[in-house]
Design a binder for these strands. Structure first.
Lengths: 200, 200
DNA sequence: GTCTATACGAAGATAGAC
DNA sequence: GTCTATCTTCGTATAGAC
């Protein structure tokens, strides 16, 4: 996980990876404390990064950091989805939900979705558009997977949208209520839905 | 809720209502700009209130303002629900969705849910608990309405949770994507669900 | 009940040394 | 590439006059 820190020629770049660490930290902070709580100070403290390198790695300041965090969050969702290619709809739904359950479990119900955090804070217009693009991409990807799994396109899109909306909402409910129950209930309903939808 | 503060007996209180205006403004700001954007400065500007009266009306400072905003948001949801007492589940769902659609329409897709905004920002523990209580209360109330409408209690609770989760999520998606389509899709699915659930 | 003035700290951002 | 120092803006909060 750490760098070789090579010396001579032909070697890999120094790879301090401070930037990457900061982006990961930003995603985590967004998920747990929102945009407000994702100050450079907090990111630095959480990732043990040198203060002097903030504007070296992020000349665009905080917006650039947030955009980078959105990209990372987006990818992590997409990666999970790709892994379910070829599976039937209910399995795709199950895996998608498992990603979020893992987030809730590991954080002891203190973390949510970084993309949602940015959407809700909505300070910057560019950031809102970026978040919207991510949600749209997720929806399209899920739709494709459901269609590949045998569903007709209209049903596939409807299922994709409600899976994403309900999951995002469920994460918020479980976080606020400090209980996994809302998430469990939503999971039960979504799974049975995917099965009956899949029949079409 | 407020104290008479009167001098002599029987007279109406001065009713400047500055406090009430500020709370309404705070709810709106929370829904559109999140906790970060709901500074006293913004609230004052938005509600055209006198700066000097902030700590007169809210001795507890910003947390007190946010708690008051949560209470108001909670009530507005509950009021809408009460109005559907005795109706069948799909009508209850329809009315609940109509409340959120109105919010999206009137704000031209720029507003979301104030309770969610507080949950996601999660600065203060008391505020998170308060938000959780509201979600739980909404869920219980919806469950009652569905049960009264003829559903068995387990189905009623499951339907209540997914309606709230999916609606909250749909509002976020539509806001971020600047399109009512995600909300429309979720509405379609939830309504057909309420109908088939209602049969049990 | 509302005003002004002000203290205080946090956060974003820049400049120049090392 | 990282450091320190500094500037500015903003938001919360208090004090005391009107």
């Amino acid at each position: 996980m750490d760098k070789p820190e090579g010396s001579s020629a032909g070697d890999r770049p120094p790879r301090t990876d401070v930037r990457a660490r900061m982006v990961v930290g930003a995603v985590r902070l967004l998920a747990t404390k929102g945009v407000e709580g994702t100050s450079f100070g907090e990111v630095l403290k959480a990732t043990d990064s040198p203060r002097g390198s903030i504007y070296h790695h992020f000349p665009g300041g905080k917006p650039e950091l947030l955009h980078a965090a959105l990209d990372l969050a987006s990818e992590s969702g997409l990666t999970t989805m790709e892994a379910t290619h070829g599976q039937p709809p209910d399995v795709v739904v199950e895996r998608f939900l498992a990603l979020w359950r893992l987030l809730l479990d590991r954080s002891q119900l203190t973390a949510g979705c970084a993309v949602m955090a940015v959407t809700v804070a909505a300070t910057d217009d560019d950031l809102l558009v970026h978040a919207g693009t991510i949600f749209r991409t997720w929806t399209e990807r899920l739709t494709d997977l459901f269609a590949t799994g045998g569903m007709d396109v209209d049903s596939a899109r409807q299922l994709a949208v409600i899976v994403i909306a309900a999951t995002e909402g469920a994460v918020v409910l479980s976080r606020a209520e400090r209980s996994a129950k809302p998430f469990d209930d939503v999971e039960t309903v979504l799974l049975s839905m995917a099965k009956s939808f899949g029949a079409r």
